[in-house]
């Protein structure tokens, strides 16, 4: 069964303290060549039944009003993905 993936990132103009800390830690572990890191959030929303346009519209509303805070974050993607666990297990019912 497919699911809806929502990705949220800190706004470009907001300094991302966590991303900055990760960027400065990478070379300490020998990972070189990365000039910047920004850390965001990925939400996976499962749906009982079909993912209709109405469901997607509701997801976009939830993403804008709850999953993100528009003062500090942008919703960068809302998309439908196949659940890899179920895809590997073959069909269902």
């Amino acid at each position: 069964m497919p699911r809806i993936v929502v990705e949220v990132m800190p706004k470009p103009e907001i300094l991302d303290p966590q991303g900055k800390a990760i960027a400065s830690a990478l070379p300490h572990l020998g990972f070189r060549g990365f000039s910047a890191v920004r850390q965001g959030k990925r939400f996976e929303l499962s749906v009982d039944g079909e993912i209709t346009d109405a469901v997607l519209a509701q997801t976009r509303k939830a993403a804008a009003e709850m999953l993100s805070n528009p003062v500090i974050e942008d919703v960068v993607d809302v998309r439908v993905e196949d659940d890899p666990a179920e895809a590997g297990a073959g069909d269902e019912g």
């Binding site: 800190p10 907001i14 300094l15 303290p17 966590q18 800390a21 805070n69 003062v71 500090i72």
Partner: peptide
């Protein structure tokens, strides 16, 4: 109160983490 839109702005992690 900022999340509830009663006050403007928001808080993020301290710059020194």
């Amino acid at each position: 109160l900022t999340e509830a839109h009663l006050l403007p702005g928001s808080m993020i992690k301290n710059d020194h983490l």
